[in-house]
Nucleic acid binder design. Sequence first.
DNA 1: TATTGTTATACTCTATAACTATA
DNA 2: TATAGTTATAGAGTATAACAATA
Lengths: 159, 159
Amino acid sequence: MAPTDAAPDLGATERAELAGAVVRRLLHLSRAMRHDTDLGFAQLGLTPAVARALHQLDPDRPVAARELAEQLECDRSNVTALVDKLELAGLVRRQVDPTDRRLKTLVVTDDGRAVRGRVHEVMSDARLLAALGDDELATLRDLLWKVSDGGCPEECGGE
Amino acid sequence: MAPTDAAPDLGATERAELAGAVVRRLLHLSRAMRHDTDLGFAQLGLTPAVARALHQLDPDRPVAARELAEQLECDRSNVTALVDKLELAGLVRRQVDPTDRRLKTLVVTDDGRAVRGRVHEVMSDARLLAALGDDELATLRDLLWKVSDGGCPEECGGE
DNA sequence: TATTGTTATACTCTATAACTATA
DNA sequence: TATAGTTATAGAGTATAACAATA
């Protein structure tokens, strides 16, 4: 009942049940977070996918559409529609790469930079974590980083 | 750099940055988990939404369609199509409630019970958590429960 | 009149396949 | 021939509005 009451050694079955409960809770929690962020994106006039695309772009470097598709883990064909909307909103400009004229690189405009900042804020809105103290938050951070590939908590690109 | 290096008191800005990083990491992690579960559901011949609907149903009690919609946090109109597929697959039966003939309650069949068990397993597949030790897992569980409404980690309906 | 389930409809997200223009 | 971006198309998910049956 008290926190951290785990016995030193868990049986395989107990371990599996515990892990399963954690996974289901994570899935549930992520739904609530997604709901929150989607509302914030809508207030910016962006659909979730468009907001995510803008967030993924690099404001300081032209990114090829192909590259964006890889970062978003989706098919290139989807990027076209996403970038159409971003370009229509004046947040991104398409630019043919002089080096290889097959490539169209995506340049974030000044407006795009501003909105991207707002998107980042929406994705950082942590009202859900209000119940945690500072040290608990740090512990959670460390555990999550260990889960999603044991990297360093600083800035390893795994944003 | 080392884990749990949090200073006793965090400034408001530092706290916000830390919380934001945790939120973004949770969102990222949930994408990977969703991807895994969707594959598992497909192997059961179920789409993600249909699998989730079946999982939400109570095998021991007829649930009104309206009630399921509330549990899934979606419009009633969607439940119709979801249940159509579940009924076509022989996993659920529609039954008019004798008490109030407006209601159609959803009864999980024997086949449905079996598949629902498989769905539960898919949603509990915690390969992603393999990097954590037993006590870390328990700590993570406690933190997540505290986040999503400070309940008890046992079984408070907040599955 | 209010509510349940259904239907019709539309929009978003995503994938596949075929097309074009470059290389 | 291989690759980048585009287009056409389809399916899943979800929302709104209107409708029939029941309360």
